Amino acid sequence: MKAFYDTGELACVALDAVTGPQVFLSGFPLAGSDPEQGQQFLLDHAAEHGHCVLYTPDDSLSLTDLGVLLRSQQVGAARLTRPLFVKEEWLESQYFRDHLPLEGGSD
C-alpha cells in the first residue's frame, strides 16, 4: 500500500493486488479480482447509481465521484485488480492521473 500527498494532505492511497488490504464496494472485492470482472462490476455499479465513469489511457476505469480507480497489476502469470482511492481533483487532472502508480512494488 502506498500513500500520496498533495500540499500535506492525503490525495491517493494505492493498494496492492495481493497484500491489499482488501476493500469491497457493494460486496465486490476490489483488490485481487479478475480485471474484466472488476471493470464490468464498476460499469454496472455506475449505471445503477449514476456515477461518473472515466477511462484512463492505460484502460483503467474510474468512478470519479467515488474516487475509485481500478488498475491491474501483474502477479506471476495473472493480472489482478489493484484499487486506488484518489481525490476527485486528481482524477479530473490528466497530469495527476498520468502520474498515479500503474503497477505494484516499485511505483
Rank of each mutant, 00 (worst) to 15 (best):
D16G: 12
F28H: 04
S72N: 15
R82D: 12
E92S: 04
V23E: 05
D34C: 13
V23P: 06
G20F: 10
E88L: 07
R97Q: 14
K87R: 12
H51V: 04
R97M: 15
R79T: 07
F4T: 06
Q94F: 08
S60A: 15
A31M: 08
L100N: 07
S26Y: 02
E88T: 05
A17Q: 10
G104A: 15
A46D: 05
L84S: 01
S106R: 12
S106F: 10
P101T: 12
L30K: 00
Q37R: 15
F41H: 01
V13E: 05
L102K: 09
S93A: 06
T7F: 09
E9L: 11
H51I: 11
Y55F: 14
Q73D: 14
E92I: 03
D6H: 03
D16E: 13
G105H: 02
D34W: 07
P57R: 13
G67P: 03
P83A: 05
S72P: 07
D65F: 04
Q22N: 14
S60F: 11
L43G: 01
S93D: 08
V75R: 07
H51L: 13
D58P: 08
A11M: 08
G104K: 10
L30N: 01
F96H: 09
L66K: 04
L10M: 05
W90Y: 02
R97T: 14
D6I: 00
S26T: 09
D34Y: 07
G104L: 10
S106G: 11
D6M: 02
V86F: 02
Q39S: 03
F85Q: 04
E103D: 12
L30S: 02
D44S: 08
A47M: 10
D65M: 07
M1T: 14
Q39C: 06
K2I: 09
P83H: 00
L54H: 13
L54A: 14
D16W: 01
R82Y: 14
F41I: 01
T7I: 06
P83Q: 03
G76T: 03
L80F: 02
E36M: 08
A11D: 00
G67Y: 09
L102M: 06
K87T: 09
